[in-house]
Amino acid sequence: MSGGARAGAPPLAAGGERSAGVIEALDGRTRLLGAFGLVLTIALLKDFPAKIAALVMALTLVSAAGLSFAAIGRKLLHVEGFMIALLLLLPFTASGVPIATFGPLVVSDRGVERAISLVITVNASVLTVLVLLTTIEPVRLGRSMAALGMPPRFVHLFLFLVRYLPILRDELTRQVEAMRARGFSMRLKRHTWRSLGNLVGMLLVRSIERAERVDEAMRCRGFSGRFPMRAMRPMGMADLRFAMLCTGVLVCLVLLEWLS
């Protein structure tokens, strides 16, 4: 367990405030590849020691990036929303040696083990993604994806989505506020579903009209289906160091898994 953690700890955690920029200095491509590599490896781990080492590695990344643990904790709670159902069900439904009974419900050792192992891997992966990817502007992420060979059409779609999502969210919020101002409230009756359907429909109509205006404006400026993409800066020493570190951590995790 300490193998993975030690490989991850010193170069990143050293230096307190100065290290806040360690992740910030990384190229978008390095972050994407690093995040995918780490998360993929974590998903393949089977044994507890390696999984715990992965969680320690992820926590080290969080402190190295200088992110606040309170803010991260709030995000994790939100993420766990999906997992609650699975985590609550697992101890009762997996087959194994019974360790406790609540009336008709039997808790099995295998179920509890499964649930704990899920909490560890899911959190380790989410923390890794939060540190490496959520700290980068989506536009830079788009350019990095293009540089890594994602189809240009998809990158355009992604960049448009990034650009228009906040605008349409605002539009939706405005419409909902207007409905509330007119006395709308959610109840279990036909009127509510009718109104919500109209709301969704209206947002779609407005977004289609917006798309037409955008399309016309872009054609006026000679858009031919391609965006000029600025070339990316070459990768620096920070990227090389991070790549080596990631490889080291991955090797340690795999070795740990293999040995136990």
Partner: peptide
């Protein structure tokens, strides 16, 4: 993506953005 025309990208993307915005809206 192959079936899609470059010119349709803004339209599809802005529609996707509105679908995404709606799916982020929570219904109590």
């Amino acid at each position: 993506l192959r079936a899609l025309d470059d010119r349709q990208i803004p339209r599809v993307a802005i529609l996707s953005a509105s679908f995404f915005a709606i799916s982020l809206f929570s219904i109590p």
